[in-house]
Structures are given as structure tokens and as C-alpha cells.
Amino acid sequence: MADLIIAIRTGDVNKAGTDFDVDIKLVYSDGTQSNWKTLDNAGDDRERGDLNVYRVDGGSGEVAELSMRVKHESAHINKDVSYDAWYLSWIAVSRTNLSGKQLFYRPNRWVEVAQGDPNWHDVGLGSPDLSIPGGVILEITNAVGAIFS
């Protein structure tokens, strides 16, 4: 049952995109947690300025928090660069009908991992807003219509 939308905006700044593997974990209001869920659509995700939308199984509880981790894709670990970075603008979490409790994180920061490091790294998202701004909901609605209809 894919009843949650996770929308992620990559910043529109030079070298903002990444080939990181990205996983999320949902934390529910009763304290339970989901397993790690990989966010990966067909093609290149998380390119400069992109809005990527993922449908995931949200379980039966109310989502209270989101955890995120990143690591280098194994195919990119030995490339000749000293680090990989991603400019993470924002993340929105909502039920697929964009109703009910929503979470909106605004990290607006670089996420960096040293080249050759094969480990997962937690991404500090900060505290969420409890609603998604109207303009962002419109962007997500348009993306969902284009991607999942």
C-alpha cells in the first residue's frame, strides 16, 4: 500500500545534484518506526533544481518524524573526486491525497560525504513544520499528476 508521498527538492545551485543512495525511516506518533526505505525512481534522481516525488507505504500510524541517511552509490565510490555533495532544499511528507498531518523540512544545506567512504551517514533534517506551504503543495500536485497518473 503506497499511501505516502515523499517529495524532495534539490537546490538550484552549481553542483547541487548527487548520485547518493538515499533512505528514509518513518517514525510514528506511538514511537514505532518503519524499516529503512530506499528512495529511487527510474532515471536520475536528485539532479540540480529537481523535484523528485516518491510513493511509499506509510503504514497505519500517524507519521510524526522522518529520518534520512545517505551514502555513495557503490559505482561511484572510486571516482576521482574528494567528496560528493548534495544541496537539499526541502522535504515534504503527506498522505497521497495531500490531507491529514503533513511534515515539511527545510534543511536548505549541503550534505557532504568524503569520497571513498562506503558508510551510511545520517542527514540532520531539523524540526519539521506541520504543514506544507501552498506553493509547494501546488508543485507536488503537478508532479504527482505528471508522474503517477
Score class of each variant (00 low, 15 high):
64 A>I: 07
14 N>S: 14
18 T>I: 04
28 Y>I: 10
21 D>S: 06
79 K>C: 09
76 H>P: 00
31 G>R: 07
39 L>R: 01
53 V>M: 09
93 V>P: 00
35 N>Y: 06
51 L>A: 09
44 D>P: 03
66 L>G: 03
26 L>F: 09
64 A>Q: 13
74 S>F: 12
23 D>H: 04
67 S>Q: 15
33 Q>I: 11
21 D>T: 04
50 D>A: 15
63 V>L: 08
15 K>F: 15
47 E>L: 11
13 V>Y: 08
64 A>E: 13
16 A>L: 11
68 M>E: 04
63 V>M: 08
28 Y>E: 07
28 Y>D: 09
89 S>E: 14
14 N>Q: 14
32 T>H: 12
90 W>Y: 10
45 D>I: 02
24 I>K: 00
83 Y>L: 15
21 D>Q: 10
12 D>E: 14
83 Y>M: 13
25 K>Y: 02
74 S>M: 10
73 E>I: 06
37 K>H: 07
52 N>R: 08
21 D>G: 01
86 W>P: 00
78 N>V: 07
54 Y>I: 01
40 D>K: 12
77 I>K: 13
33 Q>S: 15
51 L>V: 09
61 G>E: 10
94 S>H: 03
76 H>M: 13
45 D>R: 03
10 T>M: 08
53 V>A: 11
35 N>D: 15
88 L>C: 07
67 S>E: 15
79 K>M: 12
91 I>A: 04
85 A>D: 14
11 G>M: 04
98 L>K: 03
38 T>Y: 06
11 G>S: 06
32 T>Y: 11
52 N>H: 09
13 V>K: 12
36 W>Q: 00
74 S>C: 07
49 G>T: 05
39 L>C: 06
66 L>K: 01
70 V>A: 04
48 R>P: 02
65 E>D: 15
35 N>C: 05
98 L>P: 01
13 V>R: 11
25 K>T: 04
57 D>K: 01
30 D>S: 09
46 R>N: 13
45 D>N: 15
79 K>I: 11
28 Y>F: 15
40 D>T: 08
54 Y>S: 02
22 V>A: 03
66 L>Y: 03
22 V>M: 04
9 R>G: 05
24 I>M: 01
59 G>S: 11
40 D>Y: 05
13 V>P: 05
31 G>C: 06
88 L>V: 06
11 G>L: 05
28 Y>A: 08
47 E>R: 14
78 N>E: 14
44 D>C: 06
14 N>C: 10
88 L>Q: 05
48 R>H: 09
69 R>Y: 00
40 D>V: 02
25 K>A: 08
90 W>T: 02
34 S>P: 06
